[in-house]
Design a protein around this nucleic acid. Sequence first.
DNA 1: CTTGAAGGTTGGATCAGCAGACCTTTTCCC
DNA 2: GGGAAAAGGTCTGCTGATCCAACCTTCAAG
Lengths: 244, 244
Amino acid sequence: MTTTTAHEAPASLDAVFAPVHSQTAFEETVDRLGTAIKLGLLPPGTRLPAERELCARLGIARSTLRSALVALGQSGHLRATRGRGGGTFVADPQPPAQPPSPEVLAEWRDVCDGRMTVEVGIAVLAAERAQPAGVDALEELVIALDDLLDDFAAYRPLDVRFHVGLAELTDSPRLVKQMTEIQGAMGALISHIAHPPEVLDSANDQHRRLVAAVRRHDEALAARVMAEHLRGTEHVLAGLLPRG
Amino acid sequence: MTTTTAHEAPASLDAVFAPVHSQTAFEETVDRLGTAIKLGLLPPGTRLPAERELCARLGIARSTLRSALVALGQSGHLRATRGRGGGTFVADPQPPAQPPSPEVLAEWRDVCDGRMTVEVGIAVLAAERAQPAGVDALEELVIALDDLLDDFAAYRPLDVRFHVGLAELTDSPRLVKQMTEIQGAMGALISHIAHPPEVLDSANDQHRRLVAAVRRHDEALAARVMAEHLRGTEHVLAGLLPRG
DNA sequence: CTTGAAGGTTGGATCAGCAGACCTTTTCCC
DNA sequence: GGGAAAAGGTCTGCTGATCCAACCTTCAAG
């Protein structure tokens, strides 16, 4: 029989036969809520929906949700108060960020590559479709960021909101989700490196030029500015992390 | 207490509280192998690794793997022969493709948007990094495609390999995976629409120009050609599918 | 005609997740 | 002051997915 055997086939099949890592509902819940908190999408002090409502929205059992909430409580990201008027709140202040794990560090280049494609693609699509109202919202974020150049802990959440806001201009849920995921992956990498005001100033200047390009529907310029913006981070990382 | 309640917050949090859909190992295995087969990554006649080896590679129990193999056997995508020298083979011929489900049709625009960003981003990165040897391989695919313009069933697998091959030029496993996923999602949409030779001829001409741009490391041109290439498909779909 | 390599079968153990009832704490409001 | 309501906290039983490990059946190579 003249058949090809799959295991002597080229590298493109490695992905097909790569290990299956089925995330449990518990894990995905911890990941989703934890990432949202760390990104500042759920700012400190925010009250989560009641457990009975939240588990319905997430489509999981209450016991499963509670496991996740307890885990996030033990790590210091959430705190709960009982009784009427109580609830589960995002802790204020948040616990200090953990240094990136070896696994994260091992694939940081891959993460940056993913970020480059997703963000550049989104910048192009946003430039094509942006409505003036949405662009105005981004502009306000840029102005607000100008006042936070010397406090990265405060700067970062607004920065995330800027990038997610850009994704929202595309009006595509899938792209908003991808942006959120990639920002979460980046967060673990950049939270522990220095961000001097001059760097943030330059970054926010790129934000400003990006907004201008998007407003004028200049797709090529938006792509160029975004690429430049991201490469800045990459160069910093390349200098600080292993295996350059 | 001056707290924000999360459920009155803006739309960006819809994604955070969206339903958790934990895929089981069985489901992910069926999806992975099924997609690889439908995309032609595992051509008809291909022999899969032996069950005992494959389940080790996938990191799942043999019983779980067998459930997936049986499912794909019942749907006609795989066939197994027993005894020494036997094995599990990709069926030849493959069963006819199923028409896209309503859920798939409902989000076809979203899928196209995801494809646009991923493929354009990859085209840029590939243009930046491509090695001559890799580009040569793509060129051969373009030439091979020229002979298949009147047989979409034969054209499509090579087309997929072209796009995945482009992703491989970026040398980023994450991007190869994203490309494979998005191609799988597109497959369900385009397998049931007409692809006259003139259209495929034009598409392959765009392939050719894309390869040329990548070879010259002309990132902007690569992005433009790729966007044009994808918009062609989108226009065809917009004419045939609901909610244009 | 033996042997080895492959798919096919079975049974038991484990664990995640679901469902739902019930308990405890706290505050609002009559 | 005393419910009633709204929140988190606890318990128990059940189901289904998965794992593990052994064993059976087929069949071609040697």
